[in-house]
Write a protein that binds this DNA or RNA. Structure first.
Lengths: 161, 161
DNA sequence: GGGGATTTGTTATAGACCACTACAATCGGC
DNA sequence: GCCGATTGTAGTGGTCTATAACAAATCCCC
């Protein structure tokens, strides 16, 4: 139960997928998948820069927001939202619990399951992180005007559906 | 030099980031970063399904295309395109070489560097994979009309720049 | 031209992330 | 009450990629 000492988070991808001048990208320039990946890496690096030193990753941020907005959610359901297996959801929950951000409480209607809840500290954390992430997202999207941004969001959601 | 037996490739993310009905996604619904990630995971899973059993991953496909379009490119330059460190570019190159898809030839103007080239087999492979990947990309983008697709590509590229 | 800084490829090491499996406790339907 | 499904858990293994350190070659600048 004592917080395990863990190494500070280091993003797995440190470098952007550089657009190298004078190089032929062949078919890649026509692929949505490639553009998607490049944009995502850029966004990921910006996320990391904006939250540096806080050991927060995109999946962790997602988890905090989801638990905050859906108190009592089970670990399995959280895993489904994140697209990870139950075992992974548990590691994640342990991590938050060790830091006093999430508390496990027995679900009233199912004694197998835990209900996940933000602690007071978790609430503060998610509010603070949300401010930073929203600001970063807006900053990163500053190359687009409002209409383009809305369009992009809508097109991406279509694609993910 | 004999091809090392490697376990068949298994994507690290097997499950989509499900849109769970009745769940509150809070601020996530407003974030480009989250939409980007969801779309990318969906595309990645489709990629894996379309290339199943061939041990090809998006980065590997990218590498093959880049080497094919830029014969003689160095390992370091390839790493830059992919956004990975030199050591990683080398592991990747070893992997291709062990399968007879890429050959290392000494660069004529720099005796430190290798020039990477597709073998005949590599050429065939990249052509075959390209067909599959382009078809998949088009299929996946079928929810968009041509104009939307062009717009999305353009917006993503703006975002990644 | 010579010498220090830089670059390239390489090897070794380590860490983060995540899946899979097996297990016990619990639930649900019949 | 019983059997299959589900939940959380612990253990294990594999993939990917970074970092550090090194030798050989190159570059650059005076």
């Amino acid at each position: 139960m004592t917080p395990k000492p863990t190494a500070p988070y280091r993003p797995r991808t440190l470098a952007p997928m550089q657009r190298v001048a004078g190089l032929d990208y062949g078919v890649l320039d026509e692929l949505l998948g490639y553009a998607l990946r490049r944009a995502q890496v850029a966004m990921f690096l910006a996320f990391h820069a904006a939250t540096r030193g806080q050991d927060i990753t995109p999946p962790r941020f997602t988890a905090l927001v989801i638990v905050g907005a859906n108190p009592g959610i089970s670990q399995t359901a959280l895993g489904n939202v994140l697209g990870i297996a139950r075992s992974g959801a548990m590691v994640l929950t342990d991590w938050f619990q060790a830091r006093g951000l999430i508390a496990r409480r027995r679900a009233p209607d199912d004694r197998r399951a835990w209900g996940l809840h933000l602690t007071a500290r978790g609430e503060r954390m998610v509010r603070s992180m949300t401010r930073k992430v929203v600001a970063l997202d807006r900053r990163r999207a500053a190359v687009l005007n409002g209409e383009e941004r809305r369009q992009l969001l809508s097109l991406l959601n279509k694609l993910a559906a």
